[in-house]
Write a protein that binds this DNA or RNA. Structure first.
Lengths: 379, 379
DNA sequence: GAAAGTTTGTTCGTAAGCTTTACTAACAAA
DNA sequence: TTTGTTAGTAAAGCTTACGAACAAACTTTC
């Protein structure tokens, strides 16, 4: 007789489970199934989930009443038996507002559909606003997007730089002058719809998981004015003991000095990799070869910093997000080479490092995923 | 209106949830409550869990029939109302066998009670055995301990070096000559009780969490013939994409060379920190000051390797396990200093690094925790 | 073309699980 | 002795999922 360790661990629990909550799970399971595959019959869902047709019919009836699921006609293909009634998420019932506060100098936002497609965009210049001014600008861009939406809003998602707790309070975001800003609560009161505020890199990692090809264990490195990371373990974002997981910009890299950093230390990852620094260094480079060397060095530093993380977490997938012209080339090559040279290859034989496929919209789309996940249990 | 992000994430699911499974959860919840606090009444448990007294009575009745819980008499203190009937885990109903395969040259094991106290020990010299011979010795020590037990065996836990998958197959343990050794299945068939095989450092981390003071986010660094780590995130062990999480011994540290490693690289963490290397270096040291320097250097190297991990995971607690005379002193001091100097202090203000309080028995006791967790949902 | 077989989705009755309500037993305090 | 509190149980009811059975609608087979 043997016992799966993981199975045992799954039993870990801290709160009671009521039948009602189990029902909620199964409800989300149906939504998840439809969200991913779409156009399925009740019987299809029953087969896929393991629940019976009876139960699925019951759950689906509830979801139809709630307006979340619709019947879309009968299946056309010729096969024996009663033709199936196809179902789908009511993708035209709601829209989502997604906000990206992580860009330098500009707040960006969009209205998205349930599939994460962008329907309408909006921007507002930060223009040095901080504190309450910055908050007002965030609320303003949300208001303009809410006005722009052509369907009811399922929720509002915000990806913010800095440290954000589970209640959507921005504990610390130096660039925006926020400390303890309860953005989620403020926006929730103001707009009367569910709001989710989380760290930008975490949002990006979720987007890559839902809309990109990322599997459920990955690390997303977000390079911009600063450097941050979002970690997905078992498909769940990692928050850390003080909600500061992923804040790797100010970890010192290597044992051979480096440039002074604004944080007071020397040789922080940001001094090698943040775009302003990189661009300045490249501007001073005289030859193409010299430019390549600068990019390679930056990539090596990233690899040096990531190697212990890759080893400790046994990560198989790393995704880069940021300016393609800087990251996608010598820099990325040097990073993966450095990683392979500094970790156990046999454990990471399939270690992959690549650019995101979602471009600049990654945080907004991640913000939409957070809303889908919170409201529908879908992702 | 706002929505907790974590709450949304908690809805993530991949399989159906049946009432029966919810019941199982609540059953474990009762056991957990009793395991931790002991000597509680049904009403106490109801208050603590949030379930009603009726439901708790029902669950407890079931657990009493199963022999897992016993009534231990009435509460003595004078207060109004009907006196409470106290309950406890039936701690004298079962014993656990815990095995530690991670020591150099010796397999150690013990019979433990449900509280993780060691009742009887056993050892067998490995004497260079590998492959099937090593497996035979493991089964032999288990057999001797099973014979020694004075109560029925709840299960057998094994902490093995190397990479172990979720089914308890040792995918790779070079020192023991194992690759793909299905130890959990073999022992399960042989002894007819539940068996859990997992990585030694993971087991140690669980022990520190259950029996030590560790909270639910921590990293345990196990220094011995090699160097490994066990990670606990949200109270759950991290396994990694190839079950090799925590294998940090062969991550290269720093950017200034280092000694050649058996793995072919230079400057791996093990070349700085593994006990044979350290002891050899210390033996060659002429003065006490020189010895301190060697230990400080090793500690710095550990700090350099851990800094990116601490930053990326926002870890607040690191525990060291290994020879106290080597680790607990200049080495540990240098590690924490290095960590503080290389990460963002404000995120890790309470970053602590300390020795385990469980000494050499940590893996065996962790193996017992794995059994408790798998069989009772307790930890 | 009729009969047989398949598949879908629903209805009906049932079992399991938890809750609410209401009760008895057993105590302390006044 | 009365009052109020606490523990534990019993009964009834609601929710949830299931199995059995069935009608509808289709294909395949003879």
């Amino acid at each position: 007789m043997t016992t799966g360790f993981a199975a045992g661990r799954a039993l870990r629990l801290t709160t009671k489970v009521l039948p009602e909550q189990a029902r909620g799970h199964n409800r989300s399971l149906v939504l998840q199934t439809l969200y991913r595959a779409g156009q399925q019959s009740r019987a299809d869902i029953a087969r896929e989930t393991g629940l019976t047709r009876v139960t699925i019919s019951d759950l689906v009836a509830e979801l139809i009443v709630d307006g979340l699921v619709v019947e879309t006609g009968q299946r056309e293909d010729a096969r024996p038996g009663k033709p199936a009634t196809l179902l789908d998420l009511n993708r035209s019932a709601f829209q989502i507002v997604g906000i990206d506060l992580s860009q330098y100098g500009v707040f960006r936002g969009a209205v998205l559909d349930l599939d994460g497609q962008i329907l309408h965009r909006s921007e507002v210049a930060v223009a040095g606003s901080t504190g309450a001014d910055a908050t007002a600008k965030v609320l303003a861009i949300i208001a303009s997007l809410v006005a722009e939406a052509t369907l009811p809003i399922l929720g509002i998602g915000v990806g913010s730089p800095g440290v954000v707790d589970l209640a959507g309070v921005v504990l610390s975001a130096p660039n925006l002058g926020w400390s303890g800003e309860p953005l989620q609560a403020l926006a929730g009161e103001r707009f009367g719809v569910p709001v989710v505020v989380a760290n930008d890199a975490n949002a990006a990692a979720l987007a890559e998981h839902s809309f990109g090809d990322a599997d459920s264990d990955m690390m997303l490195i977000k390079v911009g004015h600063g450097v941050g990371a979002g970690l997905l373990l078992n498909g769940n974002p990692l928050f850390g003991s003080r909600f500061a997981a992923g804040e790797i910009g100010h970890v010192v890299v290597g044992t051979d000095g480096g440039l002074d950093c604004v944080c007071g230390k020397r040789g922080c990852l940001e001094t090698w990799l943040a775009t302003p620094r990189l661009e300045r260094a490249l501007a001073g480079a005289t030859t193409p070869q010299r430019k390549t060397d600068i990019l390679r060095e930056a990539g090596q530093r990233l690899g040096i910093a990531l190697a212990p993380v890759v080893g400790a977490l046994n990560l198989a997938e790393i995704v880069l997000s940021g300016p393609t012209e800087l990251l996608d080339g010598p820099l990325a090559h040097a990073t993966i080479e450095t990683l392979r040279a500094r970790t156990m290859a046999e454990f990471h034989g399939d270690l992959s490092l690549r650019m995101t496929t979602l471009g600049e919209d990654i945080v907004m789309r991640g913000a939409a995923v957070m809303v889908l996940s919170a409201q529908l249990g879908v992702s």
